[in-house]
Design a protein around this nucleic acid. Structure first.
Lengths: 179, 179
DNA sequence: TTGATCATGTAAGTGGTTACATGATTAT
DNA sequence: ATAATCATGTAACCACTTACATGATCAA
């Protein structure tokens, strides 16, 4: 079985959630996976084309009233198998976050303390915004997707985001105080 | 002033810490910045070349006894200015971590509970290892770099790593228990 | 003599973003 | 009319990793 990259599997996975078009996929990505996986149309459309060629999905042109035509993609058995097989594969290594704030802080000696503080304050407020967003998404899942079989797992990933973001905020505060 | 990417500035920054060669830079990266910035020789050497051409650094061929020849790079005034200017620039957006474990968990509905648990256990143990490493690095900085003017900032970034990793471990445990 | 460490570099390939290009439909 | 949303796609470019290539020096 050909090995695809994680982004390709993420698209395959999203096709199991009711999203059918490239546009749908982007929407869901931006709403739900945005804190740990983010992709652009420049990846989505070519990938869907490739998945079609490799028969992991089928495509149908559909017309809707009130909206432009679109293409609906559906997983084939082969596609579902590929997804499930990927899910069983152990994750080989921890992800490396690239954090520009930490990078700048690392060289903080060459900066005025005020400037460092400003960076940290700014970072903190962005994190607080993000935390807010996570709370809102969690709320929305609990109300609108109460019976969705996926919701349990979606809330797990959101919980991760909330915990990580909270401790990053705490770190900001602690660092600001001790600079 | 030409805009470089963060990786280029990270190299510029490391050249202020006593590291002088491409090899040195890689060593320090792997020891200290590895949890929030990681680069390969494939980036380091071409970047050093470019920085030399643009006169942000100067290069000297030096021979050492007991070790092969090497090239020593030193920041010019122009290079130091570029670094400091970059440090003042606000960070425009939060980094997006790409987390394969979360991605798989997001599609956990298509997996057996045992499998999900195994992934989480595995992730947790990798995180615990990482946390251990952070503690050791912090210790080593406190003993070997006590008077280093950079150490304060290095410990800040390590503290970030420790906090984030700890809460990720807690999340793993909580999720394992509620799956 | 062989493996570890020190040291520098390139080429091919992958993965990804951004900007661009197009066009339908609907509400204002 | 015109802006917003829905919808699909490509081309140029950037960033990065991996594999490859080379070679010095030293300790076991």
């Amino acid at each position: 079985m050909k090995a695809y990259n994680n982004t390709t599997y993420s698209i395959l996975g999203i096709l199991t959630t009711g999203c059918k078009s490239g546009y749908d996929i982007k929407q869901l990505m931006d709403q739900s996976l945005t804190h740990f996986w983010k992709i652009s149309y420049g990846q989505i459309y070519p990938t869907l084309k490739q998945l079609t060629e490799n028969e992991l999905v089928t495509v149908t042109n559909t017309s809707q009233d009130g909206k432009p035509d679109r293409k609906e993609y559906n997983l084939t058995q082969k596609g579902m198998d590929a997804l499930k097989n990927w899910l069983t594969q152990p994750v080989e290594q921890l992800p490396v976050e690239r954090n520009e704030v930490l990078l700048k802080l690392f060289f903080g000696r060459h900066q005025l303390a005020e400037q460092t503080l400003m960076q940290l304050e700014d970072y903190k407020s962005k994190l607080e915004q993000r935390l807010q967003t996570y709370h809102m998404i969690a709320q929305s899942i609990q109300t609108h997707h109460e019976n969705d079989p996926d919701s349990k797992y979606w809330l797990f990933t959101l919980d991760y985001g909330k915990r990580i973001t909270s401790s990053a905020i705490e770190w900001c505060q602690a660092t600001i105080e001790s600079i």
